[in-house]
């Protein structure tokens, strides 16, 4: 399926194929880490609820 297709279509001998696979994987991980995950995280907002919901009550001082 996807991965056998990828393996067949990578050029060169086995060694080169392996290196190309690693390079491709690194590119994908970089794209996920730098672009995709930050956006996903801002929508999930696990972290925001860690502290954000502890808001000053309405009666508290205002700035």
């Amino acid at each position: 399926m996807i991965y056998p297709w990828l393996w067949r279509n990578l050029p060169g001998p086995t060694g080169l194929k392996v290196m190309l696979l690693f390079a491709l994987a690194a590119l994908i991980v970089a794209a996920l880490f730098l672009a995709v995950f930050p956006v996903v995280d801002s929508h999930l907002q696990f972290d925001q609820s860690h502290v954000e919901s502890l808001a000053l009550p309405a009666t508290a001082v205002t700035a």
Binding site: S53, L54, L56, P57, A60
Partner: peptide, 8 residues
């Protein structure tokens, strides 16, 4: 998490 008094 809702106890905002700690910030008063």
């Amino acid at each position: 998490a809702s106890e905002g008094w700690v910030l008063q």
